[in-house]
Amino acid sequence: MRSLAAIGVFALLIALVPAMVDSGYLLNAIIMTLYAALLGQAWNILGGFGGLFSFGHAVFFGTGAYAMAVLQVNFGWNAWVALPAAMVLGGAVGGFIGALSFRYGLRGSYFALVTLAFAEVFRVLANTFQFTGAGVGLMVPLKESALNMQFGKTGFLYLILSFLIAAQLVAWWIRHSRFGAWLQAVRDNEESASALGVDVFRVKMLAIVMAGMLMACGGAFYVQYLHYIDPHLAFGASVSVQALMAAIVGGIGSVWGPLVGAAALQLLGELTRNLMGDAPGINLIVYGVVLVLMVNFMPRGIVGLATRWKR
């Protein structure tokens, strides 16, 4: 219950930010951090708690983003109606990929490759079809109003905060629920879990559907916040990397890991931008180095390090 209270305290603290900060730069940095934490948590639910390392979470992200854009632009849906639809579609894509992969017991690098392949296929498809705007992408017209889910910086901060809190609650539930115990048991040892009567396939399916929904929610936010989506932004590898980086750097399989990781990476990003100027791609090199170092020396991430010190 203390960890649940921590989520409440965190929500309160961030909710107070706009009252104290009015630098747009800083607000944007916080919004992007919370957004990265949401993607990280979506990865963490499958990869951290379920041990199923996805290398193509962009497939869910892009599905959510495109659903959000297409439904609004081509079908004239209201953004608040499009959001749940986008999430359901993200979950459905998760269920589809999950059913195919888990049916044949894919794990480890095989599962990672399948997810990567799906993200690439979706990218090619989005590049081809007219209703997704093909290579040009889709622009969501700027009509700032809460009714359209288009806000100023403060409004968007509250929006992403509420998405992230929902994700945190899901992670907290997984950490403490029966389903979560099953999922972690499947991660630690699939054979033993089956021997205890755990329905491994169903547990994994539920995890990937939840991950898909949360990731789609991140994609939907992206479209609302930046008003534009194209195949590379939606299904490119950088989104998948962003999601898994936050979780791995922060600490996989922990409730707070993705947020801690997202904050650390945001700081690192700002630092490299300031120190190295605008050399394009330098942040990707830094990301790569950080990832290698983390996996090698701190496999439990920053959160893991902190709990080790506590003991």
Partner: peptide
């Protein structure tokens, strides 16, 4: 085949989920 990352208590409780 225990679940190495779960606590001893959690491991035991998992034994009683189906029955």
């Amino acid at each position: 085949r225990v679940f190495p990352n779960l606590s001893v208590l959690e491991n035991l409780r998992l034994g009683s989920y189906r029955r």
